[in-house]
Design a protein around this nucleic acid. Sequence first.
DNA 1: AGTATTATTAGGAATTATTCCTATTAAAGT
DNA 2: ACTTTAATAGGAATAATTCCTAATAATACT
Lengths: 140, 140
Amino acid sequence: MHTEQIVTILRNEGHRVTPQRIAIIDYLIHTEDHPSAENVHAIVKKRYPMVSLSTVYKTLDLLRQKKLVNEIEVEGEARFDAHVDDHINLVCLSCGKIEDIDENLLKNIQSKVAKRSEYVIIKASFELHGYCNKCKSKYQ
Amino acid sequence: MHTEQIVTILRNEGHRVTPQRIAIIDYLIHTEDHPSAENVHAIVKKRYPMVSLSTVYKTLDLLRQKKLVNEIEVEGEARFDAHVDDHINLVCLSCGKIEDIDENLLKNIQSKVAKRSEYVIIKASFELHGYCNKCKSKYQ
DNA sequence: AGTATTATTAGGAATTATTCCTATTAAAGT
DNA sequence: ACTTTAATAGGAATAATTCCTAATAATACT
């Protein structure tokens, strides 16, 4: 997905396209990080110093609602990611780094659970917590 | 797992066994709910009105560290569960109800990811979000 | 291009779950 | 029983997020 595609989707659904929104989308599309709202704010402010944290929160929430970004909660903090296909998030308990891993068993699991439970499933979130390559030596 | 077993584990590891801790463990062992810290506090206070919320937090944290309870984060709030084997948590986006589902594919996924990534994996968390049987009619 | 409409924004205050602090209490080893 | 010190109660502090509102600016319509 490209910035322009997301912008077009928003515009087509009646949302206004502001420089703040473009900057936020553009950053998320081009990073491998899984930034927090605060991280996004810090980055976007370099280009648009006037952008407020509350706008960042509102925009991230809009994008999440439209399923254009994925949100996961890590240690009491929301982290965002433009990778919206189902995947596993590997979360480092030491440095907070998040790595994505695609895994096609996830689809099987979802359809199995959908059949077995009475829930209507909207969203999946698969996380594995541990220590990344850089941090694992510190913890044995 | 029974209350007494958990109590014994704590005692053997040098932790003191207080009535507050017993009450908290006992509630978690016997409920199917996935209560928040506040919920646990409310329930435990019925029997021990003097028990403080900070003690509940500390005890839940101790139990989590010892892997005697599982903690998941739902909408900015921690929820606790004495079901510690890997399972899928089905979370209702409307009423917050959480249902557990066992699924043996989870083990496969974990071992695959462990091989493929450079992370040392400590903990898994699999959540599916949607609407439970009672709430789904409201949302189509 | 100019104007009107109203969604969006900036900035800060309010909220809320959680953690921190510390004098007091009580579990457990002797 | 006495001693040691982990654990507790209660409230203050913290931090992520949401809420509030006047000002701004994106879009639609002339």
